[in-house]
Design a protein around this nucleic acid. Structure first.
Lengths: 238, 238
DNA sequence: GACAGAATTAAACATGTGTTTTAATCTACT
DNA sequence: AGTAGATTAAAACACATGTTTAATTCTGTC
C-alpha cells in the first residue's frame, strides 16, 4: 500500500526501439549471466551486475526467469548443452592404439581447461565454482559434462590394464589424471606462487599434457609388464 | 545524532562474571572464527554467525579485531602458525631410502587432507577456500604451509631423478602429486558423483596414498631406468 | 568506596542484495 | 484507430550484512 510515488518519467523516452521483442533481451541476459556467473560464482554474482552488463532493466531477470536460481540453472543447462562430447560413440576408439587415445584425450582436456578457447573456458569456470560451493545442480553438471570424459578415460585405462573399467585400479588411474589436469587450472594460487614461471603458454600446456599422459602410461605399463605397451621412454626430460 | 534510545536494560544483570577479562572472549572469538571461516569461506561467513558461536556480543569482533578482514587474517596467521612442518630440518632424510621418503610424505599428506584429525583438517579447509577465491593473504598461506612440503617433495623427486629439484621434470612430478592429493579432498563433487563408493575410509586412504606414490615412482624409475629404484610392482591391484 | 578506563551491550546505521510493485510502453490483432 | 496483453521501466520493499554509537557494566587502583 504505497500512495505517493514520484512521477515515473522515463529517461530515454523514445530513443530505443524494442522491435526485436523479448527473445533478444532474454538471450542477452543469458549471455551476460554466463559471463558473470563464470567469473564470480553463483553467490558472488549479482543481478545488478548481470543486468548492467546486458544493458537491461533490473527487474527483467525476475520477469523472464523467475528468480536468480532459475536463471543460474538455465545458464548451466545452456552452457552444458553445447559442450562437445569427447567421442562420437561409446566403445573404444578404432584406428589408433589405446596409448595414443589416452594421449589424445589428456591433451584435449588440458587444452579445454587451460587453452584460450573462450567458450569452453567459460564452461569450465562455471564448473569450478560448482565444485567448491556445490549447489543443487552440481550433480547434474558433473553427470552431464564430466561423466562422458570419465567413462571414456576409464575404458582406455582399463583396456591398457587388462582390467574392467570399474575396477579400483582403473578408477584410481583415471582420477589421477583428473586430479592432475584440474590442478593446472587457471588462477591456482598454489601454481602461481610455487611455480611462477609456469604461465601455461602453448608449449607449457603441451609439456604438461605429455607429462600426465606419459607418467600414467608408465604406471600402467609397469603394473602390467606383459602388456603390449610400446616403449614409453619420453623424449629427454626438458 | 540519535536522541531517543530505549533504556538499555541488560537481560542478564549479574549472572555472568567477567572475571577472566577480555583475553577469554578474544580467544573464544578466534576459535569460533576458525570453525566458521573453515566451513564457509571468508565472504560467506558472517560476523553474526561467529559471534553467536562464540556466545559473544555482535560488536566485539570490531572492538577486538577492528574489522572482519583483520579477524580473518588473524585466523589464518593463527591456524598456519601451528601447522606441523613436514621435516625437522632441510636436506634429504637420512636413514631411509628416497623411495620410502616419498611414500611417507605422500601418506602424510593424504592423511592430513583426508584424515579425521580435526585440527589439521580445519587448516586444510581454510586453505581450500583461499584457493578458489584468493584473498590478499593467500600467497602468505601458500608460502607458509605449502612451500615446505613442496620443497621437500621436489628434493626427494629430484634425487630420484638425478636432476636438480627446480628442473621442470622435478616440478612436473611434484605438481602431479599435489594435484592428485588435492583431488581426493572431502566434498569433491567429482569424486562423490563419479565414484560414490569412495568414501575415504582408512583403508581407502591407504590405497589412494599407495597408488599416488607407486605411480609416481613408476614414472621416475622409467625415465631413469639406470636408477636404484627397487622393483615397484605393488601388491595385486585391489 | 570512588573513580577512570577497559569491556560489553543493545540498538541503530549505512549499504548492498534479491524481489516486488506500479505504471508506462511496445506489439499484435481486429 | 483502438484495445488487450506482453514487455520494459523506475522506484520501492524486505531483508541481511558489516560497522558504529551511546550507554551500561565490569575491573583494577587510589
Amino acid at each position: 500500500m504505497k500512495q505517493i510515488k514520484t512521477a515515473a518519467l522515463p529517461t530515454k523516452p523514445g530513443l530505443k526501439t524494442f522491435a526485436i521483442h523479448a527473445d533478444d533481451t532474454r538471450a542477452r541476459l543469458l549471455k551476460a549471466a554466463v559471463d558473470v556467473f563464470a567469473e564470480q560464482g553463483y553467490e558472488a554474482a549479482t543481478i545488478r551486475q548481470i543486468c548492467s552488463r546486458a544493458d537491461v532493466n533490473l527487474a527483467l531477470v525476475n520477469y523472464h526467469f523467475g528468480d536468480k536460481l532459475e536463471l543460474y540453472t538455465e545458464v548451466l543447462r545452456f552452457a552444458m548443452s553445447c559442450a562437445p562430447q569427447p567421442a562420437p560413440g561409446p566403445g573404444l576408439p578404432t584406428g589408433i592404439s589405446a596409448e595414443d587415445a589416452l594421449r589424445a584425450i589428456i591433451r584435449a582436456m588440458v587444452e579445454r581447461v587451460l587453452g584460450n578457447d573462450d567458450e569452453s573456458n567459460l564452461r569450465y569456470r562455471l564448473m569450478l565454482h560448482e565444485f567448491v560451493r556445490p549447489t543443487s545442480v552440481t550433480a547434474l553438471v558433473v553427470n552431464e559434462v564430466m561423466r562422458p570424459v570419465y567413462d571414456r578415460l576409464r575404458e582406455i585405462v582399463g583396456s591398457l590394464l587388462g582390467l574392467p573399467s570399474d575396477h579400483a585400479t582403473s578408477r584410481l588411474c583415471t582420477h589421477g589424471v583428473l586430479g592432475q589436469v584440474g590442478h593446472y587450472t587457471r588462477r591456482n594460487p598454489i601454481l602461481a606462487t610455487l611455480w611462477p614461471e609456469m604461465t601455461m603458454t602453448a608449449e607449457q600446456r603441451e609439456l604438461v599434457a605429455r607429462h600426465i599422459a606419459e607418467s600414467t602410461l608408465a604406471y600402467l605399463g609397469l603394473i602390467r609388464p606383459r602388456s603390449t605397451v610400446a616403449p614409453l621412454m619420453p623424449e629427454d626430460p626438458v
